[in-house]
Nucleic acid binder design. Structure first.
Lengths: 143, 143
DNA sequence: AGAAAAAAAGAGTTGAATCTCTTTATTTCT
DNA sequence: AGAAATAAAGAGATTCAACTCTTTTTTTCT
């Protein structure tokens, strides 16, 4: 696949927090990991990273957990991808042709180039806010 | 990426053999691995597998090497993918939503479903013969 | 027959992603 | 102040794809 599992976990967890921490309440790591069926220690590392990069807020201690901040709603999927994966795996040629480029395409280049454009656009325009709307309307699902 | 490196190596090597073994001559492992810049021991394993599955023929000894057989030209990319990867990595949900399906799509399901259809179709219709034509016409490149 | 060439086979190494376990730091509540 | 809850941090363990190295088998050629 062209994104890591970590990316999927990060997107789903962020959307989950955005849905369930809207008032003052926070969402605990355990709650997220159980709802989304993600190994909780592993998710812990991912959440740390998201907090470090300002995607979410966290608090330790009783009633601690994760919550949104003023930026969260406007975070784009591409920002999360950058945090978890560094770069989109579609950058390199799918079948390993070193000099593959639009003027010198590999055997599957054109099929992929069209898709890549769609994917890059989608990642760089979709925000967490949009995802939560889809979820609230029952148009897409987190688990 | 959604295919393994092994798949890319296998497709490129098969196309290379199809191009350069048309008369009675065979193509050696070393020649393939050097032309396509693929680690040769690793390629050896892949070639074995292709021969075992009837995609290519091989001969040991002096003047040995790999050559096409009567099936080679009609082999589809999906057959090679089956041999190297077992299955297309697009089968499972890209962000790990377990119950993801068309009636209950995850956040990126629809973007991906369209692409997957194109990709599956392309893999299951393109043959080695078509690839060699593209290569001969200079419309695509192997390295 | 024997040497050389080449693929086949087997076994080991590496690195990265994923996952697990343990300890530490912070916050809240009594 | 002390206990409990919770995230943060650190340090493995596991798995798998990708790669490397060595030995064996088969074939050809002199």
């Amino acid at each position: 696949m062209f994104f890591s599992k970590t990316f999927g976990y990060a997107v789903r967890a962020t959307a989950f927090v955005a849905l369930y921490s809207e008032n003052e309440s926070r969402v605990g790591l355990r709650e997220i990991s159980e709802a989304l069926d993600i190994p909780h220690h592993f998710l812990g590392k991912i959440m740390q990273d998201l907090v470090r990069h300002g995607v979410l807020e966290s608090m330790k201690g009783p009633h601690g957990g994760f919550s949104v901040n003023e930026r969260t709603a406007d975070i784009k999927l591409s920002e999360i991808l950058q945090i978890t994966d560094g770069t989109l795996a579609l950058e390199t040629c799918a079948i390993g042709v070193r000099k593959c480029n639009p003027d010198r395409p590999c055997l599957v280049h054109n099929d992929l180039a069209a898709f890549k454009a769609v994917m890059v656009r989608s990642l760089s325009t979709r925000t967490i806010h949009e995802l939560t709307i889809q979820l609230k309307e029952g148009k897409s699902f987190l688990f």
